[in-house]
Design a protein around this nucleic acid. Structure first.
Lengths: 239, 239
DNA sequence: ACAGGCGAAACTTTATACAATCCCTGACCA
DNA sequence: TGGTCAGGGATTGTATAAAGTTTCGCCTGT
């Protein structure tokens, strides 16, 4: 017996279980990209990553394919995997999609609001503020995207959440490539205002704030041509 | 120099090249699902499929993982892959997402309209009509979904197109599981009306028609509990 | 007769070995 | 001096083999 009631994702999506090794690889690489430690164009060799995480190429390959499907890794046949380099056209599409989806997500989040979730949001704002205060740009940029992911999760709409996860990861690359100044990643104050609107259950204002927030981020971009870089891999991945 | 201008999907997504074998497997299974030849819950054994397509399990596995990411195949650890069985909750999410995204897609499609595209749309309508006339339900249901995919492709918005591809595949499963009567898959006349609005470049009407079309499809569903089935595999896949 | 546990078979998962492809280097030729 | 072509090295793509897990059937004991 010992019936092990496992959570189980009956739906479909291969869930993000941190349990297995391929998920660890995927999340390690994803985090590195989200924190701007892995730059667009960086070669992601199978052997190299496999050695870092102590996994065979089979598992690394699986992880890289999943990341390719999410749009943050580009796989070229017989050449290997690279951190994706979104074009300006991609950038516009990503932000248009976010402007379309995120207001709806906020709507759902407000419907699903609970003391527990408000607590988590509040805590997240604190973390963001802390990271920014101590000048930790890496963590700051990551948490900034994670805020949006958190709201999506809160909405309980798993499809929107899945789509947005892709869009956020790509946004991170886009911001890295095309941001004009070193303006703070995402205005933290905006996030706080959005949380306030959620707490008040003011849907129309929350939508409006989210929309203007995204518009402002996009406005800070200069969508022309990118620049190249090439960092070392084992330095940047803290396996 | 000798610059070889290759088409190249610089973006990211592993393109749908029908060239390699894993794509053939993926599309074969996808088509079978779209034509309702593979029913929800059907076991997709690696050996079985591999033998059908003359490929090793490695390639089958890759294809199945991709399909899992698209949400039409469910992979259970140490148990294998099955055709996904969307829940009523999933169904509502899918159609909500479609109601959100497709009107925007139609907008873009109208911006990108050209004689060439109008020709393709018209030809598609003819095919749909032909299939329905000769009572070919399988082809009919597939073409019905393909219409939406065609409009998405026409829009030139690759992100929307990618999202919608997933949503359409899932919709097919949902319709199979939850449709009330044997009403025609998607009213063909609706599609024709939408094309007319596109031809006239009437955005607001095109959006409205698309929205009501989707609403009507969803209204024909009975979102309660599913039924089981179990077909044979090699009969249904015409590799 | 029924419940429980042991065991074998089938499947997925992971690892390793082989084959194909591409890129880079270096030499040769115009 | 610049360009082209061939060879070597490296890396990915594919297949096969070993390992681990689950499931199902059967047998035994009560």
């Amino acid at each position: 017996m010992a019936a092990k009631a496992q959570p189980k994702s009956d739906t479909s999506l291969a869930a993000d279980n941190g349990s297995d090794r391929v998920s660890r690889i995927r999340e390690g690489v994803t985090t590195a990209i989200l924190e701007h430690r892995l730059l667009p164009g960086t070669k992601l060799g199978e052997d190299e990553i496999g050695e870092i995480y102590g996994a065979s190429r089979t598992l690394v390959r699986t992880a890289l394919h999943q990341l390719a499907h999410e749009g943050i890794v580009s796989i070229e046949k017989n050449r290997g995997a690279f951190v994706a380099r979104p074009t300006p056209a991609d950038a516009r599409e990503v932000f248009e999609a976010r402007r379309l989806i995120e207001p709806s997500i906020v709507d759902h989040a407000i419907d699903a609001v609970s003391p527990d979730w408000l607590e988590r949001l509040q805590q997240h704002l604190a973390e963001e503020h802390a990271a920014e205060s101590r000048g930790d740009a890496r963590t700051s940029i990551r948490l900034s995207g994670e805020f949006h992911r958190l709201v999506a999760e809160m909405s309980g709409h798993s499809i929107y959440a899945g789509f947005l996860k892709e869009l956020i990861a790509r946004s991170s690359l886009i911001i890295l490539l095309y941001r004009r100044h070193d303006t703070p990643a995402c205005g933290t104050s905006h996030h706080a205002e959005i949380v306030t609107a959620i707490r008040r259950k003011d849907k129309s204002q929350a939508r409006e704030l989210m929309l203007s927030h995204l518009t402002e981020i996009e406005a800070e971009l200069f969508l022309k041509e990118p620049a190249a870089d090439e960092p070392r891999l084992s330095d940047v991945l803290g396996a």
